[in-house]
Computed example of a mutant assay.
Amino acid sequence: MEEKLKIYEKTIKKKHSFNWTPNYKEEVRTSLNKTVFIPIAEKTFQKLDWDIVFKDENKIEAKRKEKALGIEQWTEIITATYNFGSLEVKSESLGNEMWDNGRNSKRVKLFIHALKETENEFDRNALNQLEKETEKKNNWDDYVIPEILPKPLESKKPNFLIPTIGGIITSLILGFVIAEVSIRGIYFIGLFEFLVGIAIAFALKLLIKTSNFTDFQKLNFLLIAMIIITYLSNQYFQYEIILRENNYDRIGFLEFMKIRFTEGLTIKTLNTGWIGLIISWILQLGLTYAIAYLRLVSTITSYQLERIPTEVLDYSYYQFVKGKSEQEVRIELANKGWTEIENQNEVFEAIQAVYGQIELNRIK
Rank of each mutant, 00 (worst) to 15 (best):
F122R: 08
E311F: 05
L270M: 14
E3V: 07
T269M: 06
K106N: 06
L265D: 04
K63S: 09
T21R: 15
E88W: 14
T81H: 06
P150E: 00
V312S: 02
R124M: 11
D314G: 09
W338F: 12
F122V: 10
K209D: 05
F45Y: 09
T170W: 02
E147Q: 08
G273C: 05
K90I: 07
T266M: 07
G252T: 02
I241R: 05
K90V: 03
K268S: 13
G323S: 03
K47A: 06
N104G: 03
L223T: 06
Y355R: 12
G337K: 03
R107M: 12
D56C: 10
A350G: 00
N335M: 09
I162M: 07
K268W: 13
F202D: 14
I12H: 06
I259Q: 14
L87M: 06
I186Q: 15
R29L: 13
M1D: 09
L127C: 06
W20L: 10
I173W: 04
S86Q: 15
V329H: 09
N361Q: 14
K205Y: 15
N101C: 10
I78F: 01
N234Q: 12
S31A: 14
F237Q: 12
F45H: 03
S171H: 10
E147I: 11
A179V: 04
G323R: 00
L313T: 03
T339S: 11
E154T: 08
I7G: 02
K65D: 11
L222H: 00
L222V: 00
N128H: 10
Y317H: 08
E76F: 15
D56I: 10
F84A: 14
G85F: 07
F111L: 08
R244K: 14
E346F: 12
Q304R: 10
N345F: 11
S211M: 02
E72P: 07
S105P: 04
L243M: 10
Y82N: 13
I198N: 00
N125Y: 11
S17L: 07
I282S: 11
L115E: 02
K324C: 08
Y293S: 04
A353I: 02
T269R: 07
T79I: 00
S155R: 13
L219A: 03
S316M: 05
I300N: 02
L287W: 04
K132F: 05
I189M: 14
L161C: 01
I183Y: 15
N343Y: 09
E359V: 15
Y24A: 02
A41W: 04
Y24K: 06
N33D: 15
F320V: 04
N271G: 00
S298L: 08
L127R: 05
L174T: 05
I227E: 00
K63E: 10
E117Y: 12
L265P: 04
E255W: 12
L265E: 03
Y8S: 02
V321P: 01
E180D: 15
E26W: 09
K136D: 00
F45A: 05
I52R: 08
E326W: 15
P309Y: 11
I267G: 01
L207N: 01
G95D: 00
K67Y: 10
E72I: 07
I145G: 07
G323K: 01
K13D: 14
S211H: 03
R307N: 11
T11E: 06
A353K: 03
R184L: 11
G185E: 04
L110A: 14
I228D: 01
